[in-house]
């Protein structure tokens, strides 16, 4: 790959860069694999700071503007740091009808965060997501990898309190 110096970044260690280099090496020869590369790099670093997007674009030999365009187009990619725990709150129709709005306002009340915001202590990031496809359990949220259904405002807060 084209050699670019690794940018100094507080959230990305040298080990992470080693793995990011591996991801780039695997995906570089495959046409159309930039989205896969970005996803895998984000899984590694937690988010995609602009410095990292630049680095990936050099590695993949795609113009930084194009990579930035892709990263900003898809909801999966974040250019802001995330909290230790990610709350994905389903804002699909079934969850909406069943009152997810009240739960969102309750979370705002308890933790002071709205959609796409992170608490100051980086404990939680809140993401309002489109249908999680678990409408049978509406309203639904996913905290990290655990799914919780049939929520009420009280139960949502009770659950979140378990995540430090």
């Amino acid at each position: 790959m084209a050699h670019v110096e690794r940018p100094q970044h507080p959230d990305i260690s040298n080990d992470m860069f080693d793995k990011i280099d591996e991801i780039i090496a695997v995906n570089r020869p495959r046409p159309g694999s930039i989205i896969t590369a970005l996803r895998e790099c984000q899984d590694m670093a937690g988010y995609l700071p602009v410095e990292l997007i630049d680095y990936i674009s050099h590695g993949m030999n795609i113009a930084p503007s194009e990579v930035f365009g892709i990263a900003s187009f898809y909801a999966l990619f974040s250019m802001e740091p995330k909290g230790r725990h990610t709350i994905k709150m389903c804002l699909g129709t079934a969850c909406y009808v069943k009152g997810v709005k009240q739960i969102m306002s309750r979370i705002h009340l308890e933790y002071g965060i709205g959609d796409s915001e992170t608490t100051e202590d980086r404990r939680f990031s809140l993401e309002a997501v489109r249908c999680l496809g678990a409408c049978g359990l509406a309203p639904v949220m996913i905290v990290d990898k655990d799914t919780y259904g049939a929520l009420s405002s009280d139960r949502a807060v009770e659950i979140l309190e378990k995540y430090e």
Partner: peptide, 25 residues
């Protein structure tokens, strides 16, 4: 398998194909 990246419009067929090609969907 090709994993999407969270864009509703990619359910539209031509957008889906663009996305597999590694572009904005």
């Amino acid at each position: 398998i090709y994993q999407g990246a969270g864009a509703f419009v990619c359910g539209e067929e031509t957008a889906l194909m663009r996305s597999i090609e590694g572009k904005r969907g």
